[in-house]
């Protein structure tokens, strides 16, 4: 967490010295910025200045039905560790770029890098996702959104263009306590013998504010895994903290229950509007 803060502080103080830089120094700084962004992009998946607007993986999997604002730009970085049922460990690093491309519409470009001794199929995949929100929640109607994604075979040991379509609903129950429902239908374009072609991931989530700057969020995730006859159940809980007007930090943990589910997982990330 301290490292993220120091990056922001460095970026700011550097900007303040801009007027006395030589062109060569400026070039070097631009390269450094790009490098830092690339680094961030390679191990986190969330950047938005609004802690109320839930983003997948920051810090739990549930997403709300609201897109980032039109004309917003965000970088997100998600890091995580998962200890699996078969005693393997998976570390992941997901950089994301998110844009409010049209009113009520966001576009995301992300890449998921996997490390550790667990299955690393798909590591390095580049994905593109769009989300469209249909409505502002009313006293009666939930907010609804639909999102869809494409993952060309750009990662490790991956074939075919995988697709997914996600249905998202958000409903406030009282105050700012909200229930979220995600149903993600995934298609594996060229599955191996032991893999499913189609599978689902369903999430029931709940979020509530702890104070003006912090949101608590939890979810239950039921997933058909890529391998046939494997299912997992996870409970996750975490917090989203608005550190500055454009920076949100997120930290969460999760526990699997039932056979085939991961034993323990944790996520840390941030999102930054630029």
């Amino acid at each position: 967490m301290n490292r993220k803060i120091s990056i922001i502080v460095i970026a700011r103080s550097t900007d303040e010295r801009k007027q006395i830089r030589t062109p060569k120094q400026s070039q070097l700084l631009r390269f450094s910025y790009s490098f830092v962004l690339l680094m961030l992009a390679s191990f986190s998946n969330c950047f938005a200045g609004d802690h109320l607007n839930l983003e997948e993986g920051l810090p739990v999997q549930v997403e709300d039905a609201y897109p980032t604002a039109y004309r917003n730009r965000e970088v997100q970085l998600i890091t995580g560790w998962q200890h699996n049922d078969d005693n393997t460990d998976e570390f992941h690093l997901t950089p994301v770029l998110e844009f409010g491309v049209w009113p009520n519409t966001e576009l995301e470009i992300s890449s998921d890098f996997l490390f550790g001794n667990a299955d690393r199929t798909g590591s390095g995949n580049l994905s593109i996702n769009g989300l469209y929100n249909f409505n502002q929640e009313s006293l009666f109607w939930p907010a609804f959104a639909i999102s869809g994604g494409l993952t060309p075979p750009t990662g490790e040991d991956n074939e075919g263009v995988d697709t997914n379509i996600k249905f998202i609903a958000t409903k406030t129950v009282t105050g700012l306590h909200r229930i979220h429902f995600n149903l993600n239908l995934k298609n594996n374009d060229e599955p191996k013998d032991e893999e499913r072609r189609n599978r689902y991931l369903a999430i029931l989530g709940y979020s509530l504010p702890l104070n003006a700057d912090t949101l608590l969020v939890m979810d239950y995730v039921r997933e058909q895994q890529r391998e046939k006859e494997m299912e997992s159940n996870i409970f996750e809980i975490g917090a989203r903290y608005k550190l500055t007007p454009r920076t949100v930090l997120a930290f969460g943990i999760g526990f699997g229950f039932g056979e085939e589910s991961p034993g323990f997982l944790t996520n840390f990330g941030f999102q930054y509007s630029f």
Partner: peptide, 15 residues
Amino acid sequence: SLSLNLFAEKRNEVS
């Protein structure tokens, strides 16, 4: 979702 899109109030936030 499309039918909802026809009558619901839009969020329309701008950055």
